[in-house]
Amino acid sequence: MHIPDGFLTNRIALSLDVVSGAGILYAARRAKVDISGRTAPIMGMLAAFVFAAQMLNFPVLGGTSGHLIGGSLLAVLLGPLIGTLTMASVVIAQALFLQDGGLVALGANIFNISAVTCFSGYAVFKLFGKRIIVEGKHLFLAGFFAGWCSVMVSSACCAFEMGLSGAIPLHIGLPAMLSYHAIVGIVEGMLTGGVLKFLLKVRPDLMKDEGGTGFGIPDWIGAMLLVAIPVALLIVAGSSSLPDPLEKLLGATPIASGAVPANPLSSSRIGDYMIRSAAFILLVGLGILVSRLVRSRRSRS
């Protein structure tokens, strides 16, 4: 899900850089972390935890494997602001250490993977009730949906950005990303719920304080704006300049002309789009079937 450099147009990548940068500055100021207190080391250590946890993977189907992504877990444990900051450092580290995700695309990746997962996960979790952590009822369910939704929203954002950049058209990218991440999300959700349940059983004291930052209505409005502005920006930037490098390509080269309609969602494409998504879903189903078969044979032998 980490977007490398080259798949976003400059306009989109740079505007998301600005948005994420501003968001991080705002979060760092708003979160009011007492730097001399325990929160700073805890944030750093949990960032390292998320990084390490991603190494603990397990087979999902066929060759692919799943692991914890962690945004919604951190948001539930630390609150959305500190969670976002912590996840942001994970994303930056992945770009700098492993070259996983690009440098100019960093803003987009921070937006998708840290801000969006943390806020959507937190919002969904809170839908299950304010005192859910204290009461512990439906904790697994809340964690599951928080995790699942966070992954879905995040992958949708990713698909939108790529689509608007003209790298991967929306009508292919969106269903592909969503259906793939619907499965990844199940793993993420079960792990988020499972870890929360485990923590409540073993160390409930760790879950009470939420990092000490309440998140009031003004913050929600601020967060909504923070999300709404880039979306608006993207749509404006995207529609006015959709294929900014690629348009020139089309205009100049006869190879690919004609086949591409100006509007990626025009009716002539819809049939194609349905076929592709059907094929993809079939493929996924086949994968599940095969892995089940392999498993049942293995357990019988």
Binding site: A40, M45, A88, A93
Partner: peptide, 15 residues
């Protein structure tokens, strides 16, 4: 921001 830099430095160390 300092908090982010600290985070990254701890992350690097404890990774």
């Amino acid at each position: 921001p300092q908090i982010l830099a600290m985070n990254l430095s701890f992350l690097y160390r404890y990774l």
